[in-house]
Nucleic acid binder design. Structure first.
Lengths: 141, 141
DNA sequence: GCAACCAGTTGTATTTTGCAATTGGTTTGG
DNA sequence: CCAAACCAATTGCAAAATACAACTGGTTGC
């Protein structure tokens, strides 16, 4: 599953895992939209295909960024959760959003979170990380 | 050249430009290794192909992250420079490096910059951005 | 003037992605 | 109790992106 690394540079290693069009959008949906189910990711505005979603979730699972658990209330549903390693991606997602919002034609409807993160600084990020930990890190989740 | 955006989300827009295995490595090389020439990018450890490099440089050029100028001292050489928009990617690159260094098996030989950025905080980032501006933003460069 | 160097380009094989239809099973509503 | 809707995927195929190697026309250094 994991191809051998082309270099030991931390930026390269991170990009080998997350450097594609979809992986970080999935994590964005977990962080900012509270999505936890396969079907929810599928319904995102960008329109990921189900086979790509399956493959990306498997990869994120394999490298320890998310976990997968059965929904106790619904035998068919799987609940995807962020790990501590995944929650630590928030500052990175925040920088992507801030930069995109500054330099690209983001729609005002979507600009809210980026704007808030830009003004809230590290205090807001830490608060959001605490909330995510609360929602995702519950024993076994 | 620019495909239509799948959504106006700033994270999505940024990922449509930079969400691939190579674009951010090129910018990393400009920021941390001082590379400015086609041949230098080609010699990076990860081994980008020349056709991919050509295409990525063209894209970064088209969206205003880098500029291209003729080397006054060498008719054949092209000098690639970061724009202000490109220099503002440093906080993003920094977060990628910090996260990669914390969670992935980065080699000690490559970990230096990430470690420094983690400890130096925003003061270091601002200092580095000032240096990059000095080197890349000289009138017309 | 010849070898090394420069920024690419070309051609082809391989891999990844996108898209649509489908699967086997579960839950919901009447 | 049965049908329709929902669930997380899987399959097959076409299209696009990527990797790899060879090559191009021109420039520079010795």
């Amino acid at each position: 599953m994991t191809a051998q690394a082309k270099s030991g540079c931390p930026i390269n290693l991170a990009l080998e895992l997350l450097g594609d069009r979809w992986s970080l959008l999935i994590i964005r949906d977990m962080m900012f939209a509270g999505k936890r189910h396969f079907r929810e990711f599928l319904q995102s505005e960008e329109g990921i295909s189900s086979n790509i979603l399956t493959e990306r979730l498997a990869r994120l699972l394999a490298c320890g960024i998310v976990t997968r658990a059965d929904d106790p209330d619904h035998k068919q549903k799987a609940i995807y959760s962020l790990t501590a390693m995944g929650i630590e991606l928030l500052p990175l997602l925040a920088q992507i959003g801030i930069w995109g919002n500054r330099h690209l034609p983001a729609s005002t409807a979507h600009a809210g979170p980026a704007k808030a993160l830009e003004q809230g600084g590290s205090a807001l990020i830490q608060a959001m990380q605490a909330e995510l930990a609360q929602a995702h890190l519950q024993q076994g989740g």
